[in-house]
Amino acid sequence: MRARRLPLALLALIFALGLAAAEAQQAALQVPFVKTAIPVDPGWTGWKAAPAVQVPLMPQAVAQPWNLTPSIKQLRVQAVHNGTWIAFRISWKDATKNAVMYTDSFRDAVALMVPVGKAAPIIMGGPGERVLILHWKADWQEDIDRTFQDIAQLYPNAWQDWYPFVAGEPPYDITAWTNPEARRYLTGWVLGNPRSQPDKRTAVEEQIAEGFSTLTTTERQSAVGKGVYADGAWHVVIARPFAAGDPNDPAWRPGRSAPVAFAAWDGGAKEIGARKAISDWITLKLGAVGR
């Protein structure tokens, strides 16, 4: 699999550029200390005072499938911290809200990536160079804001007389599938796949990676977030404690600098997985904890 991704030389070049960029501080985001609790809300008034940077996005053309013409060109990013938690507010223009997935449609999403150690390759880390990835998904937000997107929500006119081993009445809401014989058919849910869980608590999935194809959901989920779509744009807050007592805690802390990178997906353009727009590393300049 590795061999097909791209010639080794190109891989090495991108690797080197990624590391170099992190050191060269191509762009920096001031992350002020705030004394309050930070609400997980893109509409919080405190965001008005937070500095912002425009983060340009590039095509993802390292791992297959490539996305040479990404839909989202740039993100507006802000961040604040209160000594314990760091929160990002990420905004971007998107003409369509894509929060529901049918068999042929995809959802909007945004993610940020931080090295667990001092630095990591921009290509989702590398062997032994782990990154932490916090991934907000519009469909998870929809599950939380409205209700889990079951058949009755996805296809209001659909009718199913019966499902084996399921008691009750149509439309046989998925939460009523308590019989173990019935639950066998809900593979992803039973196996703990976060995508398949009807009772989502946050729209952010916390994950680690050591290179492409290695993305793994962490056992401990410490990140939270919320996205709001308004006036042709998404505004998403992603927040996490600096230290969650997790071996995957990044080396970020107040008063220091830390690299962060972003990726974004436009579901309307059928972007998902590797079909994404990615940023280079930018530097977070975390303010010291004040009084």
């Binding site: 997935m101 469909d139 997107q149 992803g188 796949n193």
Partner: peptide, 26 residues
């Protein structure tokens, strides 16, 4: 448990024999 519902396989299989479950999203 590892599938993330990207549907690259759905697009790839020329026989149309990988199908997306829109409730479980895999």
């Amino acid at each position: 448990s590892r599938c993330r519902g990207y549907r690259e396989c759905v697009q790839a299989c020329p026989y149309g024999k990988v199908l997306y479950n829109p409730v479980l999203r895999i």
